[in-house]
Design a protein around this nucleic acid. Structure first.
Lengths: 333, 333
DNA sequence: TTGTAGGCGTTATCAC
DNA sequence: GTGATAACGCCTACAA
C-alpha cells in the first residue's frame, strides 16, 4: 500500500496515488463536483480519510485568488463597543466558512491607513472602523480597500456600504428624555475631538440649543477619561450628564460613587452604545442603544454580496434606541 | 516604458520587467537580502514603488510554508475576560508582522475540536482557550494543533506550553480576605460544571473546608447567570459571595441593587479576573486579578520561539492577585 | 552579484 | 467522466 513520505505534509498527490486516480479527480471530489463516478469518489474519500488529508489553505488561496478571510480593523480591541460587531461578523462569516482577521490600530491614528491596507492584503474584504481618520484620507484609502464596509462612520462615498449610527438622533432622544425629567442644564462629556461620531453627536446638541443649557466638557473615549472628569462635572453645576459612550459613563459612575454622589438622586447619567455591562451596573445605565451584533451581521451580508460580484444591500443608518434605566431620574435642582 | 496589463494584479514579474532585471532579483530586494548591487536595488525599489507593487500574501505563504498568522480560539468573543489576552497577543504579534485570526466556538463545545483544527490550518500556530473541552479530547487534539499554547487551562501535557492561572490560590486569597472581615458562611456561584477552571476553584475551596461554611450554588459564566442567582444567594443566608468570575459577579451586583440589598453592607461580593469594568462599578468589585494582557504577550513569546524552532520559554502559572475594593466589607451578621 | 529553472499544493482548461 | 498540463505568484538552490 502506498505510503506518504513520513513527516511531510500530505498533499493532493498522495491521495491521488493512494486512490489510483489523478490529482484533478481528487480535487473534484474534495470540492463536491458532481461529475465524478460514485465508486471513484468513494475511493478518493476513503483514501483522503485514511491519510487524514487536508487541503493546503495557502495553495487554494493562490489558485483561487481567495483567502476566505475578512479583516476587522478597529482602534482598540479592548473596547467593548466593538465586541458585539466582531462576534456578529465572526459568527455570520463562519456560516460561509469565512474567518475573521483582527487588527488593532492601538490608537495610532497615523498608522491606521497602513494597517488597514496591510490587513486587507491578507483578506478578501474588510470591515473598517476608523472613527478618527480624517475624511480625505479615508476617501483616498477606500478604493484601495474595496470591497470594504464602513462601520459607525460615514465617508461620504456612495459606493462603499455604510453601517452607521445616527448619533444626533440618539442625542436628541437622550436629551428629550432628560428634559422630560425636568433637566435643563446638561453636561456632555465629549469624545476625542478627531472622532467623527463625536462631531455627529455635537450636531445633535446643536439642534437643541434652545431647549437646554449645554455644558461641554472635553473628555475622551475610555473608562479613565470618564473617571477623571467627575470633578469637572460636579463643578459645572449640571443636573444631568450625557457621556460620549457607555464606557465613559461607567467611568464617571464609578468616580461619582467614590465621591458619594447619588445617581440619579443628585445627578443623572447617560451614555451611548448599550454595552452588555450597562444593564448590570448599579444603577443600571440609561443609554442610547446600538445593535452591535446586528451591525456585524449586516456587515458580513454586504461583504458577502460584494465578494460574489453582486451589488451590496443598502447602506443603513441605525437610529439608536433609548433605553431608560436607573441612572437617570427627576432633576434635583 | 513598460506598463502592466491594466486591471490585473501587479506581480513580481511586472516589477522585474520595469526594472529590467529578473524576478529573482526583485525578490531578493524586496526581502532585504544584502547581496544586491546598490544601484540595481534602487532601480527595483523605484519600479516597485511606481507600480505600487505589493507581494501576494497567498503566494508567499505557499512558497514559504508560512502564513504569518496565528489563531486565537475562544468560547465567546464577547466575554471581556478574553479581550485583554487578545489584545496582548495581537499587539505583540504585530511587532513581528504576524496577525491574529479569531475564532469563536459560540459555546458549541462539541464543535470546538473541529474549529480549532480548521483555524490552525490557516495559521502557523494557535492560542487555544478551551475551558470546557474534556481532558482526553484535548490531549488527543494537541499534537495536531502544535505549535500551540494553552490559555487558562492545563492539559497535563508537558510538551505544550501553558499559560495558566492558579485559581485555587485565588480562591484561598479571596476566602482569607473575607474571613478576615469576619465572614464564615460564604456562597460560591459555581461556573459551568464542565469547566476545568471551575474544578480548580473547587479544589481551592476544598482545602479550606474547615475554615468556612461553604454553600455551593450552581450558576454559570455569564451576566445573566449571576443576575438570576440573586434569589438563591439571598435564600442561602450567607454574608459573602464569591462568583465564578467578574462577569457573574457584576450580574449578581446588578440584581442585588435592584432588590435593594446593600453591598457590602448586607452582603459582600467578589469575583475573578479583574476585567476592566470591575474597577468602575459601584461599588467597585473585589476580585482575584489575572494579568490578561500579559497572558497574551507571553503566549506570543512562546509561539514565536516555537515558530523559530526554539524551545519555548517555561510554562507559567500566574497566581491571581487579590484586589480588595468596595464590594467586600465587614460581615454583617 | 545576477539569472535560470523548479517547486510550493491547488484549481481549471483542455483533450481524450 | 477522467487525466495531463498549465496557471496562481513567489522563493531559492544552482548555475553562470
Amino acid at each position: 500500500m502506498a505510503r506518504q513520505k513520513s513527516g511531510e505534509r500530505i498533499t493532493i498527490g498522495d491521495v491521488a496515488a493512494l486512490a489510483g486516480v489523478s490529482r484533478a479527480t481528487v480535487s473534484r471530489v474534495m470540492n463536491g463536483l458532481a461529475t465524478v463516478d460514485r465508486s471513484i469518489a468513494d475511493r478518493v474519500l476513503a483514501a483522503a480519510k485514511q491519510l487524514n488529508y487536508m487541503p493546503s489553505v495557502a495553495a487554494r488561496s493562490l489558485a483561487l485568488g481567495r483567502t476566505h478571510t475578512v479583516g476587522y480593523v478597529v482602534p482598540d480591541l479592548t473596547n467593548p463597543a466593538f465586541h458585539g460587531a466582531m462576534r456578529g461578523l465572526s459568527l455570520a462569516a463562519a456560516k460561509q466558512h469565512y474567518r475573521v482577521l483582527v487588527a488593532d490600530t492601538a490608537e495610532h491614528a497615523e498608522e491606521e491607513p497602513i494597517l488597514a491596507i496591510e490587513t486587507r492584503r491578507r483578506c478578501d474584504a474588510l470591515v473598517l472602523c476608523a472613527p478618527r481618520m480624517p475624511q480625505d484620507e479615508l476617501l483616498r484609502l477606500l478604493p484601495e480597500l474595496a470591497p470594504v464596509v464602513l462601520l459607525n462612520r460615514d465617508a461620504g462615498d456612495e459606493s462603499t456600504p455604510l453601517l452607521g449610527i445616527d448619533w444626533a438622533s440618539g442625542v436628541r432622544d437622550l436629551v428629550r428624555h432628560l428634559v422630560g425629567l425636568g433637566h435643563r442644564r446638561i453636561a456632555y462629556l465629549a469624545g476625542p475631538p478627531s472622532s467623527a461620531s463625536n462631531t455627529d453627536r455635537l450636531k445633535g446638541f446643536e439642534s437643541l440649543r434652545d431647549a437646554i443649557d449645554l455644558v461641554q466638557i472635553p473628555c475622551g473615549a475610555m473608562f479613565s477619561d470618564g473617571h477623571a472628569a467627575a470633578g469637572q462635572v460636579l463643578d459645572s453645576d449640571v443636573t444631568a450628564v450625557i457621556a460620549f459612550n457607555d464606557v465613559v459613563a461607567l467611568g464617571l459612575l464609578g468616580a461619582l460613587h467614590e465621591l458619594g454622589v447619588q445617581v440619579p438622586g443628585q445627578l443623572s447619567v447617560a451614555g451611548f452604545d448599550d454595552i452588555p455591562f450597562a444593564a448590570f451596573t448599579s444603577p443600571a445605565l440609561t443609554t442610547a442603544s446600538v445593535p452591535q451584533l446586528e451591525l456585524g451581521e449586516l456587515a458580513w451580508q454586504r461583504l458577502w454580496a460584494m465578494l460574489n460580484g453582486e451589488r451590496p444591500e443598502h447602506s443603513v443608518v441605525f437610529r439608536p434606541r433609548l433605553v431608560a434605566r436607573g441612572s437617570t431620574g427627576q432633576a434635583s435642582d
